[in-house]
């Protein structure tokens, strides 16, 4: 395989071929959440639903603990993880706050501040 030099952008993962391969099972499970029937099946037994899609241990642990950064590290794509977040009624400010280690109010204040600069 040809060696690849990847661009490093702090705090940012480029969802490239390596991540798409790594996260395929996790993203496929999250894609299934476009159906209400599947969302309910997941909620009834999250661990069993992860097993049905053959998530590896890292992915399953990240999903069951709802840790977004861990899901990303396990190959999750932001848009598909958001479908899992939707099941728990988490919006993008909840998810942003969790990833950046601040409260939701602090995260929202930071967004407003970005408009003033």
């Amino acid at each position: 395989m040809a060696s690849k030099t990847k661009r490093v952008i702090p705090g940012t993962t480029i969802f490239d071929g390596d991540m798409a391969r790594k996260g395929y099972a996790l993203n496929k499970m999250c894609y299934s959440f476009n159906s209400e029937e599947n969302r309910q099946e997941f909620l009834a037994d999250p661990a069993a639903y992860c097993d049905k899609f053959a998530l590896n241990d890292e992915q399953k642990k990240a999903v069951l603990s709802l840790q977004v950064l861990d899901m990303l590290a396990a190959g999750g794509n932001a848009y598909f993880i958001a479908k899992l977040g939707g099941i728990y009624k988490l919006d993008m400010q909840d998810v942003g706050a969790q990833q950046t280690g601040v409260t939701k109010e602090e995260f929202m204040a930071k967004l407003v501040e970005a408009g003033r600069n």
């Binding site: 705090g11 940012t12 932001a78 942003g96 990833q99 950046t100 967004l111 408009g115 600069n117």
Partner: peptide
């Protein structure tokens, strides 16, 4: 906008 990662919430008005 950036939804994911430790840089979530990034905005660049300029």
């Amino acid at each position: 906008h950036q939804l994911d990662g430790e840089r979530a919430g990034f905005i660049n008005k300029k």
